Amino acid sequence: MDIEEYKASLHQPKPSPDLNRPLQALWYAAKGNWHKAHELVQDEPDADSAWVHAYLHRVEGDKFNAAYWYNRASRPISSETFNKEWEKIAFNLI
């Protein structure tokens, strides 16, 4: 799957079962289901999940929590628009 196919999948009722948890979480975030997205990554120990987790807390407006998760992901705190950061994460995880 490439980024365009991933973005096109947002028209489907559910994400592809072939997607890993961080990509599923981003998918749900794009669909406006922050809670489902958070549920998918909150207990995952890997850096990709931490990056998505950081993004979710930034969207939520919790800068302190987001900073913690960016650190866990070994990523700088983003100052990009939410859409640009979503695209960047998706592109890097696909």
Rank of each mutant, 00 (worst) to 15 (best):
W86C: 05
D48I: 11
Y55R: 05
K84F: 12
W34G: 05
K36T: 02
H11C: 11
P15D: 00
F82C: 11
S9K: 02
S16W: 03
E44W: 08
A73T: 13
A47T: 10
N33P: 03
I3G: 02
S79L: 12
F82H: 13
L26C: 06
S78L: 11
W34C: 04
L40K: 02
A37P: 04
L23D: 00
K36F: 01
A47M: 07
K88V: 14
D43W: 07
A37M: 02
L26K: 04
K88Q: 15
D48N: 15
D46N: 11
S16M: 01
Q24G: 06
E60P: 04
H57T: 02
D2H: 08
R58H: 06
L23E: 03
V52L: 12
I77E: 15
A25R: 01
Q42F: 03
S49P: 12
A30T: 00
E60R: 04
A73S: 12
W27C: 01
Q12V: 00
S79F: 14
D48S: 15
A8Q: 06
D18F: 06
P17A: 09
V59W: 09
L10I: 00
R72K: 15
E5W: 00
L26I: 09
R75F: 10
H38M: 06
G61M: 09
R75M: 15
S9N: 04
Q24A: 10
E4M: 07
E80C: 10
L26G: 05
H35W: 05
E5C: 02
A37W: 01
W34A: 02
V59A: 10
K31E: 06
K36I: 02
L23V: 00
F91R: 14
E44G: 07
I77M: 15
N33G: 05
D48W: 08
L93T: 10
L19K: 00
Q24R: 14
Y28F: 13
L93W: 04
N33Q: 12
P45R: 05
E39M: 10
N92C: 13
A66I: 01
N20F: 01
A25Q: 01
K36N: 06
P15Q: 01
H35S: 13
W27T: 00
E85L: 13
R72D: 07
E4A: 11
N33Y: 06
V41E: 03
Y68P: 05
E80V: 08
A25F: 00
H35D: 15
N71K: 15
E87P: 07
G61L: 07
A30V: 00
A47S: 14
T81M: 08
A8K: 07
N83Q: 14
A54M: 10
Y28T: 02
V52P: 09
L19E: 00
L93A: 12
A66N: 01
Q12H: 12
K88F: 14
Y55V: 00
S79K: 13
A90P: 10
E5T: 08
K63F: 06
A67M: 13
N71F: 10
V52M: 10
W34I: 03
E39G: 07
Y6F: 12
R21V: 10
W69N: 05
V41Y: 00
S74M: 13
A73I: 13
D46F: 05
Y68S: 01
D43K: 13
P76W: 11
W86K: 09
A25L: 01
E85G: 13
A73H: 11
A30E: 03
P17N: 12
E5R: 06
W86Q: 08
R75V: 11
D18N: 09
E5G: 09
R75H: 14
E44C: 14
P45D: 12
N83V: 13
